[in-house]
Design a protein around this nucleic acid. Structure first.
Length: 899
DNA sequence: CGTCGGTCGTAC
DNA sequence: GACGTACGACCGACGT
């Protein structure tokens, strides 16, 4: 069950701020409209941030209030409201009403007091309350269930936030304000007492009353000032106290958003000249509460073959606030795919397929592909027309292949499902339809067949293709109606989805499209060299074994090592077979010659088959570059993955392997720039755990592994040997992965007892880390999921399993996921910011790869200094942690040099 | 001939 | 069983 939430907007405070912050815009009739514009933008943001919640917008009413009765000088020095602001109040009220928002204007009571009353009342009724305001006086209302949010600068303040900002607790804010006074409202304070002194005094004496009682203990001139103000202070306190015991005639439960009044809203928007909003009206005024569940008993799927029919659908799309959209193509490979048809849905159960390029004997005549696409272009390229899809990144590519630049990507059901629950299902449409709609969709294989005789979509009969394709669009729309409300129940998840994942989709498409240049001749050369070394190793190994065998077959190696040569079995595979993996062969190599040869063979043939042979095959003949695919809804933690080819596991650790990176090159006139976050997961661990020692190590810019070694092994940092540092590094990484003593022992070649004593030592030196690990396990058990810093969730259904192995596995994930996932959130934010900058500044530079903690760019030589600087800055500011985010930026002619 | 589980190895 | 997240090559059993 979810807590109900009330959003209170301090309309008056934002009205003033918007008026002063924005240039003097005028409506078509020439009236001032800037404040209305500013406040309404803010409201729209609030609505999209909190689509599900109770809502009220509060304004001051003209006239005197009880504060004027208390103090005739109240607000006496405030200049009268400028006419061009006053005249905006009434239009703004009309706009708020037209948007369907409860509007509250109480005469004789200031907006502050109304907000206070409503907030406290809602709190008592068990609501979470968010007050959107720019007024610092409101901080006195904050408690465990009431927080402030300043929508204009995107900041939020809870109890800790108040303490951080003002240095006093929310319950001390009134005293604090009384001491400082307020020039604008003409509230006297103590002369020469500002925020610093007020906070200091309240820290020492707790309350104003106690301070007054001890006023004679304050020395100096400032003490005199205090004593001189004693009489005045109770009044100041009364004036700054928000009254929250007034009985207002509103039931909190009634403060619900109503549907916007489209007619009135449109009229107002055109009167005000808010044309951009007017155009986007559809998606913005979508029903705020979950759309009615209308599982269509029967579906109505149309196949569009005539101009008239198409025009009818075009009009539907043009008028729709949001439409679902899907392309059918010749290939799953985005770089090769050409459009065969397009499908649309506007309302559940009703969809259309427009075949454009089916090509088989007897295929009916279809609408002209070029003409249809040209007709659709203005719709598809209009950023104000909201589109919905399933894996829209693919459609983005497909349309780009046809010369269409899709804009207005509003929603993607694949990402909705992924953010809602990354592990409950795979996020393809068939599985989603089954899980969330209980619908068995037509599968591609049902109409195309499978295996070698699988048809390309253009070869599929239109009678079969139509229902399949239309269903795709329909299901996408229905999934959206189901998933978006689910997502919106948790606003952190919704923000993650809307602010990170959806914008990222287009960024990824751009990176994929950019591709990376590869020196295929260099790779071919490397393949030849590897081939000859491999052959020589094979001969050598066959001689040693006494007969020929396949060095690439673990099974054959097993027979030779353990059956024929009778070497000791050091480890078994999960299936009970004697293992021949790297660590085993490494150990055996000390006493026998053959394992060494196998190891070398393995390493070289891996490089050859996976990289030097394969990468040249993946170069796109059209661009001469490699275009990977990034997958946004695969890794449970929030990381991306990469395939075809996987550019996130190109070797770097060995000299031989690094040669492959030398083949990732910059074209003439450009350089490769690689920027990576240094130790980001450990920094996140420092942030999340708040461990003092770890925080200190990072804030002092120490080498963290050396610092850990010095702490754990009790030596001075300069006495840390290579070996000690290596051990410390293994511990640090082990911690991130939820290590056991067994794992560490194996890693470092220790006994389990020794490893355990290292771990004990570590936790003794870094107790905050120990506490964090314990509490995250407990939290996972309690709530069944863990979260990243940005609210991404990973559910852990096995965390309370009776099966020890399953449970421990879930516990390790509980420890690892917040760190790995937070790192993923951060670099995604950096990618969005960097992409935006590259586009807006029209930089001669491209983002070309992401490798979890690293971004790789291709930058024009004469822009290097500037771009490296901006990249560093943008990556740095992607998150605000308790430790600095250090970014290493390197440059070179190839990826290897750039490190 | 295609699929799939098992094993191994690459990255962060 | 024992250190998290991925992708993918290769082998070899098994099914068509």
């Amino acid at each position: 069950m979810t807590t109900k939430r009330l959003i209170l907007v301090d309309g008056s405070s934002f009205l003033f701020r918007a008026y002063h912050a924005l240039p003097p815009l005028t409506s078509p009739q020439g009236l001032a409209i800037n404040a209305v514009y500013g406040v309404s933008n803010m409201l729209r943001k609030m609505l999209s941030d909190y689509p599900q919640d109770h809502f009220a917008v509060i304004f001051d009413a003209p006239g005197k209030t009880f504060r004027h009765d208390l103090y005739d000088q109240y607000k006496a020095h405030r200049p009268p409201m400028p006419d061009d602001l006053r005249c905006q109040i009434e239009p703004l009220h009309r706009l708020v009403r037209a948007m369907g928002l409860p509007l509250i204007v109480e005469s004789g009571i200031e907006a502050d007091d109304v907000l206070g009353c409503l907030a406290k009342k809602a709190d008592q009724l068990g609501f979470e309350v968010i007050i959107s305001t720019g007024d610092k006086d409101m901080a006195q209302l904050v408690n465990a269930h009431i927080m402030l949010e300043n929508t204009m600068n995107n900041s939020r303040m809870d109890v800790q936030g108040v303490i951080d900002k003002f240095g006093v607790r929310p319950d001390q804010i009134i005293d604090y304000l009384a001491l400082i006074g307020d020039a604008v409202d003409n509230i006297p304070g103590v002369p020469k007492v500002g925020p610093k002194t007020a906070a200091k005094w309240l820290e020492q004496y707790e309350s104003l009353d106690n301070l007054i009682a001890n006023a004679d203990k304050i020395t100096g001139k400032i003490g005199e000032n205090l004593r001189a103000s004693l009489e005045q202070l109770p009044l100041s306190k009364q004036l700054t106290t928000i009254k929250w015991d007034i009985d207002l005639p509103y039931a909190i439960d009634d403060l619900e958003r109503k549907p916007a009044d489209p007619t009135e809203l449109k009229a107002l928007l055109s009167e005000f000249g808010f044309t951009t909003w007017l155009k986007t009206l559809g998606s913005e005024t979508a029903a705020p509460i979950s759309e009615p569940e209308t599982p269509p008993g029967k579906t109505d799927y149309e196949t569009v073959l005539s101009e008239e029919h198409f025009e009818r659908w075009f009009a539907k799309l043009d008028n729709a606030e949001l439409f679902a959209f899907d392309t059918e193509t010749t290939s799953l490979d985005y770089s090769k795919a050409r459009i065969v048809g397009v499908s649309f849905a506007v309302e559940p159960g009703h969809a259309a397929y427009v075949p454009l390029a089916h090509d088989y004997p007897g295929a009916p005549e279809q609408l002209d592909k070029t003409r249809v696409l040209e007709r659709l272009r203005p719709l598809l390229e209009n950023p104000a027309k909201a589109k919905l899809g399933q894996n829209l990144k693919y459609d983005l590519h497909v349309l780009a292949n046809e010369g269409i630049d899709l804009k207005g990507v509003a929603h993607d059901t694949m990402l909705e499902s992924y953010v809602y629950n990354s592990t409950a299902t795979k996020h393809n449409m068939d599985d989603l339809a089954k899980k969330y709609l209980g619908v068995d969709t037509i599968h591609f294989e049902d109409i195309a067949g499978k295996g070698a005789k699988q048809l390309s979509f253009d070869e599929i009969a239109i009678e079969e293709a139509g229902p399949y394709a239309a269903e795709d669009a329909d299901i996408t729309l229905r999934l959206h109606h189901k998933l978006r409300p689910l997502l919106a129940e948790h606003d952190a998840l919704y923000r993650l989805y809307a602010d990170i994942e959806v914008p990222l989709l287009s960024v990824l498409a751009r990176i994929e499209r950019n591709g990376v240049a590869v020196d295929t001749d260099m790779l071919a050369q490397q393949s030849m060299e590897l081939a000859s070394q491999i052959i020589s190793l094979e001969h050598h190994a066959h001689d040693l074994a006494g007969h020929s065998f396949n060095l690439g077959s673990p099974k054959q190696i097993q027979e030779i090592l353990y059956d024929r040569l009778q070497l000791p079995v050091l480890k078994k595979t999960p299936k009970g077979q004697p293992s021949t993996d790297e660590s085993v062969l490494q150990e055996l190599a000390a006493d026998y010659p053959l394992p060494r040869l196998i190891l070398e063979h393995r390493s070289l043939s891996k490089l050859k088959s996976t990289y030097t042979d394969k990468l040249p095959e993946q170069v796109d003949p059209n661009t001469g570059r490699i275009h990977t695919s990034y997958h946004q809804a695969v890794a449970a933690t929030g990381r991306l993955s990469s395939s075809d080819p996987n550019l996130q596991n190109i070797p770097i650790r060995t000299e031989e392997g690094r040669k492959i990176r030398k083949a990732f090159i910059a074209p003439p006139g450009y350089k490769i720039v690689a920027a990576d976050y240094s130790q980001i997961e450990l920094r996140i661990m420092a942030h999340l755990s708040g461990d003092a020692g770890l925080l200190k190590a990072f804030s002092e810019g120490l080498d963290v592994h050396t610092a850990t070694a010095a702490e754990v092994f009790g030596v001075a940092p300069e006495q840390v040997t290579h070996d000690l540092r290596r051990s410390a590094k293994a511990i640090n990484f082990g911690l991130i992965y939820g290590m056991s003593s067994f794992g560490l022992a194996q890693q470092l070649g220790l006994t389990r007892g020794q490893a355990q004593s290292y771990i004990d030592l570590y936790f003794a030196r870094y107790p905050g880390v120990k506490d964090y690990m314990d509490s995250i396990r407990a939290l996972a058990r309690e709530q069944g999921y863990v979260e990243t810093l940005f609210g991404r969730r990973l559910y852990l259904p096995d965390i309370n399993s009776r099966n020890a192995a399953q449970r421990q596995y879930a516990e390790r994930t509980a420890i690892n996921a917040p760190m790995q996932g937070t790192a993923a959130d951060i670099i995604k934010r950096a990618m969005i910011a960097t992409d935006r900058w590259l586009i807006e500044a029209r930089e001669d530079a491209k983002m070309i790869m992401q490798v979890h903690d690293e971004l790789v760019f291709e930058v024009a030589k004469d822009r290097l200094d500037h771009c490296m600087d901006r990249i560093r800055t943008l990556m740095n500011s992607a998150a605000d942690l308790k430790v600095p985010l250090l970014v290493d930026v390197g440059v070179g002619d190839n990826w290897d040099e750039a490190h």
